[in-house]
Design a protein around this nucleic acid. Structure first.
Ligand code: FES
Ligand code: FES
Lengths: 151, 151
DNA sequence: TAAGTAAAAGATGTATTTGTCTTTTAATTA
DNA sequence: TAATTAAAAGACAAATACATCTTTTACTTA
């Protein structure tokens, strides 16, 4: 469903939403370590998100990536649009050239409700809302033990 | 979730379940046309399934692929195991190195019920059962207009 | 203003997936 | 048994996804 690239960036965005703001930035190296992702690859992806105005960055000492207030109003759907594109979400699970209710494939009625449910979250919730829910629910962005404020 | 290869083969297997048996065989050319899949690629995949004893075939005039009674007792899960492998179904939707209830990612609680639901169908229903349900429900394996018994 | 730091940019490399093409083997039938 | 048909097998080609490396640019601070 999602490419590795997209998985890395979604988790990075949520991580940045939780641990950064205009005054607190984090470099790729630390992000990649904390989230267990390939560092140079993630750097490329974050650059792309920066170009699409989804994340902010500054160079030099104490520089790094962060999410501004505005960045935090974006949705996961915006990330997906920027990295993977959204075609996969409208495609048939079994590869029919079109997925619709008129000519459903045998799994259409199982897959469609799920897609709608997850799409709802991806499109309608802001990154900030995601971050708040993560804090409340105790869900995780990495299985690695890390402290975002260390060093 | 599923590779193109796997999508092609699943639809082919269901197609073969519907329109073939020990006495009625169909060649790759027709299958690929009816299902709108790349013909030589599908041929490769069907060969693989033949090696894994999931489909039957005979060479020569009036030869082709078909599903024996035994073949029709197999599951979609068996196809997936043969073509894609099953790892993807146990992996985290957001790319955590492990997907479990102990350390769930933010979408775990949405994705897991869906995965279990579809897995249930893939594992527990036989190809024959799928075929029967397809006949009853009128779901389709192709958007192309075809007649399996023509020519 | 020089040294150091970290992102940006671009070139490059590798693996996997997807797909094709050609030759061989097996079955049928005339 | 020769001609024909269709799958089997294997080599090959292209596209995409995944990932790294090197150089450049911008910012900070001593
Ligand atoms: S038609 Fe296959 S998932 Fe909708
Ligand atoms: S932990 Fe992410 S889907 Fe289960």
């Amino acid at each position: 469903m999602l490419s590795n690239a997209c998985k890395y960036t979604i988790r990075s965005m949520l991580y940045l939403a939780l641990y950064t703001d205009e005054t607190k930035k984090i470099g790729v190296k630390k992000i990649a370590e904390d989230l267990d992702t390939p560092q140079p690859f993630l750097a490329k992806l974050l650059q792309q998100l920066t170009r699409s105005k989804l994340v902010s960055s500054t160079k030099g000492p104490n520089g790094g990536f962060f999410l501004s207030k505005k960045n935090k109003e974006k949705s996961v759907w915006d990330i997906i649009k920027s990295i993977d594109g959204t075609e996969k979400f409208s495609q048939c699970f079994l590869g029919l050239s079109k997925c619709d209710d008129e000519n459903p494939c045998p799994v259409h009625s199982i897959v469609t409700p799920f897609k709608q449910r997850i799409l709802e979250d991806f499109r309608d919730k802001t990154i900030l809302q995601w971050a708040e829910e993560i804090k409340k629910s105790g869900t995780v962005l990495s299985l690695r033990d890390f402290d975002a404020f260390k060093e």
